[in-house]
């Protein structure tokens, strides 16, 4: 196994996982990851609305201000452009700011700073200046929230060169990926699947358990042979459930967690499709101009002769996010994924 392969499987714990792997919520894993990064590097700062005393509305930064002080965990004025714009300045000054955007729908006041400065400083200065900053965004629906609290804006960021866009889907990935994001010299838009915050999964936080390579890679979560299903963030458990249900019907799904949405790590996907001949890409975001379209186009190009069916997509619809009482219809669920799997097989 290469180091990269190692990284791709590291998050999959064997059934007889060592006792150091503890059931941990994704939220707690992020909190632990932030703490580890702050302990490792005094230049790491957290900033955002309500991140200090309150510990964030999702408690991701719980206790960190108490332990690291008001100078390292900063309750900012209520202004997202301000948060990201000053984070840029802090990064230019040698800090590694981790900015929290309270909800997906509230990042847009900062969009100008993200597109015009965050993404372009390295390019503009020909690498003389770097942008080691992380923008954490809880994203996705399924929590019964009011408008602007359930959006999936990731593709808007994927379209901007210079940004790294990643999404975690499990406690172990949350823990290691946030640390890699903070250590990264490029700006990272870090999407957190808010409806999975309270789900527990084994986390082995020992330094020895650190993944050998980058976590900003696509990883095979479950090997299979009939259809490849790929997604990221909140939809991963849907894919796992689909794989279970399909297995009961004698169909074998290969589940891929993309993790890195931009730049995409497509080699594992292409390699998988060469074996299965079928790909279903799943995302909560609207269909049009989404990264799912990018994946479909590129896989078609690279694995055209291996494909037995077109790449199919299961996604939100081309509408604004609907009122929460109908979000169950909007979000890709087990049945819609299985329906696409059927269509791919029967094409």
């Amino acid at each position: 196994m290469t180091a990269l392969d190692d990284a791709r499987t590291a998050a999959v714990l064997p059934d007889d996982a060592p006792s150091q792997a503890r059931p941990t919520t994704l939220a707690k894993a992020l909190n632990m990851g932030l703490r580890a990064a702050m302990e490792a590097d005094p230049k790491v700062l957290l900033m955002g609305e309500d991140v200090g005393k309150l510990g964030g509305v999702f408690r991701i930064t719980d206790s960190l201000q108490k332990d690291f002080g008001e100078h390292r965990v900063i309750d900012t004025p209520l202004a997202e452009s301000g948060i990201v714009g000053t984070a840029v300045g802090l990064a230019l000054r040698g800090y590694r700011p981790v900015a929290e955007i309270q909800f997906d729908g509230f990042v847009f006041p900062a969009f100008d700073q993200i597109v015009s400065q965050v993404a372009k400083v390295t390019y503009r200065t020909q690498g003389r200046a770097r942008m080691p900053l992380v923008i954490r965004i809880p994203f996705g629906g399924g929590i019964g929230a009011v408008e602007h609290h359930a959006e999936s804006p990731e593709s808007l960021f994927c379209h901007v060169a210079g940004l790294r866009v990643v999404a975690c889907s499990s406690a172990a990935d949350a823990y290691w990926m946030i640390q890699e994001a903070i250590a990264c010299d490029d700006p990272v838009i870090f999407f957190e699947p808010k409806r999975r915050y309270w789900e527990k999964a084994p986390l082995d936080a020992r330094p020895a358990a650190r993944p050998a390579g980058s976590t900003f890679t696509s990883v095979v979560r479950r090997a299979g042979s009939d259809v490849t299903v790929a997604s990221y963030g909140p939809s991963l458990p849907v894919l796992e459930a689909a794989a279970d249900a399909a297995a009961a019907e004698g169909r074998s799904l290969e589940v891929i967690d993309l993790r890195a949405l931009s730049p995409l790590d497509l080699d594992p996907v292409v390699e998988s499709v060469r074996r299965t001949g079928r790909l279903v890409v799943v995302s909560e975001a609207p269909l049009e101009s989404s990264i799912t379209a990018d994946i479909a186009a590129r896989v078609t190009e690279e694995a055209f002769y291996s494909l037995s069916a077109p790449v199919l997509r299961v996604a939100g619809f081309d509408t604004p996010y609907p009122p929460s009482k109908v979000e169950g219809y909007y979000l890709p669920d087990l049945d819609r994924v299985l329906d696409a799997v059927d269509r791919a097989i029967n094409w």
């Binding site: 219809y329 669920d333 819609r336």
Partner: peptide, 18 residues
């Protein structure tokens, strides 16, 4: 049309699975 396939279980599509 897809939802109509679940006519026997009207709420099938309304669940957020997994």
């Amino acid at each position: 049309q897809y939802l109509a396939g679940f006519a026997d279980t009207p709420d099938a599509g309304a669940q957020v699975h997994a």
